[in-house]
Design a protein around this nucleic acid. Structure first.
Length: 640
RNA sequence: GCCACCAUAGCUCAGCCGGUAGAGCAACGCAUUCGUAAUGCGUGGGUCGCAGGUUCAAUUCCUGUUGGUGGCUCCA
């Protein structure tokens, strides 16, 4: 089946492309991928709405597919809610200019340019005004205007952003506008029939956003909100948000004493003993699997001379994000990436084609000067460890090698039970190398993914400056996705550093290089894991695996013996011999999310048993200690 | 970096209109030796992020700054 990429524009990503069967009309694509929406379009047509006039409405339909919302009704509802928001704002703050106001995955927003700076109190007032507009039950009326008339209309209203949007459209496209009462907006729809249909909504937050997402443009004021068909659904969603906040890795990081961030080092995380256990365990798993997959581990310096970074291209392309230092009056840089260091290892001796592929991995500590506003707990920091690896190979080995890398990633993510999605990023504007080489590299990645059977979407122009990449994205507790794993085909670096291997013919040849990271950043990955498990790590990576809880002082001696036994098995076990009631000790172990608790009282001491309590299942009753120990050991080894 | 907001005890927070601060939990002490998510009583702990300014007087008002939060931009 032949496929083609079609490009569609929407606010969040003007160059978005999706893959579809060749020759389908946009409506057919909608019919395939968003049946509910398709039905709605048919219904609208039956109602006499002229829907084929503009391809803009069809593009809008596809936007819904991409925002993951096949629920056309909900999308239209939220879109209408954004109009009601804009309507209310213009009533309360006349002269406010409208930018754009789409429905998004979990709600909607509208961007405003206003002389008035909105405050959180304003949101309450705006919500009240919105309720009035809902009560007025104004019908949403659609009109199509010729382009010049549309421009005249919005010129009269002083809506310069709308005019800019119209001017970006093709000349012959009729302009679709929507009216509700005295309010009018440039809009492709679709909407619900009247404002009265929007029964459950809430404004959530204020934020700044650049006009058209470009930091060179003016910063507008964005108001975020959400809307649902029913009040109960809205309440359920808000409750979900609250529960997600309880899983926030920053909150759990403090409560479980895993890590901290200090004013003395913004963006430079401190790992506490508990966090270090988690970290060491996931590194141990990493080393085991990399051994199995034929990697060799190296370690390269954190500080290296400027010349290296000039040669690698980082000086030209990445300098603004780098830290520098003088040593003996020479300029050195703190490494922002591990590649050049690894390349120097490769280049330290000759290589034969027989050795390839060479897979060198490194837990590399890198520093990047990220913008202060971008920092976020462990997810976005200024110093982090990349679980990096560089693979040097023959051009003929590319596809198989990438498939192997994908297999390794898949294997590791599945140990944690993590869901991920992959994205293919292509040549950015600011890039090294010519188009043909980029095309070749991009195709190699694409083929490997397709042969492995990995689903992916495409991010045009989002590649690194030295090559295209596959990114693996994982979700945090609020559903925000973070890039973790990455596979980057680098066809520039070997050139820049004149890397070679000796071929069968005795001549020097250029190897191909892959740069890849599985966890991406150990710090970010731990942040993801904390939220994924809500702090209740599986036993194998729990900071404390077992807590022994004697009921009274006379049980402590026996408890100590058990502790010694478990120590011998390398189990992380703590003895809570404080003079507290058993309920108190259990509560504390529970709050710390300790996987196993052993309650020791008269009965256990007499019978030589232990009473086992699991953090999720509760009391499991008494069993022989040796049975417990064996089962625990098995669970740890199997990483169940 | 940009926009908005926030900053009080280790943590979560209260403190109306300016008169130098409180609660719960935690910590510590004493009593209690207890059977599956918080025993009771008591004690200590804060130059109210930092620096200026206004004022007789600033945790409170103003300015700046540092750090954080939510976004934007960027990105592992």
């Amino acid at each position: 089946m032949e496929k083609e990429m079609i490009k569609i524009s929407f606010a969040a990503n003007p160059d978005y492309k999706i893959e579809v069967e060749k020759g389908l009309t946009v409506l057919e694509i909608v019919a395939q991928k968003a049946p509910k929406l398709y039905k709605m379009i048919l219904a609208a047509k039956a109602d006499g709405e002229d829907i084929e006039l503009s391809d803009r409405i069809e593009r809008d339909c596809i936007i819904q597919i991409l925002t993951g919302s096949d629920d056309a009704g909900l999308h239209a509802l939220r879109h209408t809610a954004s109009h009601i928001l804009a309507h209310a704002v213009q009533r309360l703050f006349p002269g406010t200019k409208l930018a754009i106001g789409p429905a998004i995955a979990n709600g909607f927003y509208y961007d405003f340019d206003s002389g008035h700076t909105f405050s959180p109190e304003d949101l309450t007032a705006i919500e009240k005004e919105m309720e009035k507009i809902v009560a007025e039950d104004l019908p949403l009326v659609r009109e199509f205007l010729p382009r010049d008339e549309a421009i005249k209309l919005f010129y009269g209203l002083g809506e310069k952003y709308k005019i800019e949007l119209i001017e970006a459209l093709a000349d012959d496209v009729p302009i679709s506008i929507y009216r509700q009462g005295e309010f009018v907006d440039l809009c492709a729809g679709p909407h619900v029939a009247s404002t009265g249909k929007v029964k459950a909504f809430k404004l959530q937050s204020l934020a700044g956003a650049y006009w058209r997402g470009d930091e060179k443009n003016k910063m507008l004021q964005r108001i975020y909100g959400t809307a649902f068909a029913k009040k109960t659904e809205l309440d359920a969603y808000l409750k979900l948000l609250e529960e997600a906040a309880a899983r926030d890795h920053r909150k759990l990081g403090r409560e479980l004493d895993l890590f901290s961030l200090q004013d003395e080092g913004p963006g430079f995380p401190f790992f506490h003993p508990n966090g270090m256990v988690v970290r060491n365990e996931i590194e141990k798993l990493w080393r085991d699997l990399h051994f199995d997959f034929g990697y060799d581990e190296i370690k390269t310096p954190v500080i290296l001379a400027r010349e290296l970074w000039i040669q690698s291209g980082h000086w030209e392309h990445y300098r603004n994000n780098m830290y520098f230092t003088d040593i003996d009056e020479q300029l050195y840089a703190v490494k922002p990436m591990n590649c050049p260091g690894c390349i120097l290892v490769y280049r330290s001796r000759h290589h034969s084609y027989r050795e390839l592929p060479i897979r060198m991995c490194e837990m590399g500590l890198v520093h990047r000067h990220e913008l202060s506003g971008a920092l976020h707990g462990l997810m976005r920091v200024r110093a982090f460890t990349q679980d990096d690896a560089h693979i040097f190979m023959l051009p003929s080995q590319i596809k198989d090698e990438i498939k192997k890398v994908i297999e390794l990633f898949d294997k590791v993510y599945s140990v944690y039970g993590l869901q991920y999605h992959a994205e293919l990023s292509t040549k950015p504007e600011k890039a090294m190398g010519d188009d043909a080489v980029w095309e070749l590299a991009t195709e190699a990645l694409r083929e490997a993914m397709e042969e492995y059977g990995l689903n992916y979407k495409v991010n045009p122009g989002d590649g690194a400056f030295y090559g295209p990449k596959i990114d693996f994205h994982l979700k945090d507790s609020l559903g925000r996705t973070w890039q973790c794993g990455t596979i980057q085909l680098d066809m520039q670096m070997p050139e820049k550093f004149d890397l070679t291997y000796v071929g069968e013919d005795g001549q020097k040849h250029r190897p191909v290089m892959i740069h890849r990271a599985l966890y991406g950043s150990i710090e970010r990955f731990i942040g993801i894991l904390i939220e994924h498990y809500a702090g209740a790590f599986p036993v194998w990576m729990s900071p404390v695996q077992v807590k022994i809880l004697p009921i009274a002082e006379r049980h402590v001696e026996y408890a100590k013996k058990l502790q010694e036994e478990l120590f011998k098995e390398k189990v992380r076990v703590e003895l809570d011999d404080r003079n507290e009631k058993i309920g108190y000790k259990i509560r504390e172990a529970q709050v710390q999310k300790t996987p196993y608790m052993l309650v020791i009282g008269d009965k256990e001491v007499e019978e030589g048993k232990v009473s086992v309590r699991k953090r999720k299942e509760g009391d499991l009753g008494a069993q022989d200690f040796s049975v417990f120990a064996a089962a625990l050991k098995k669970e740890i080894v199997e990483k169940a």
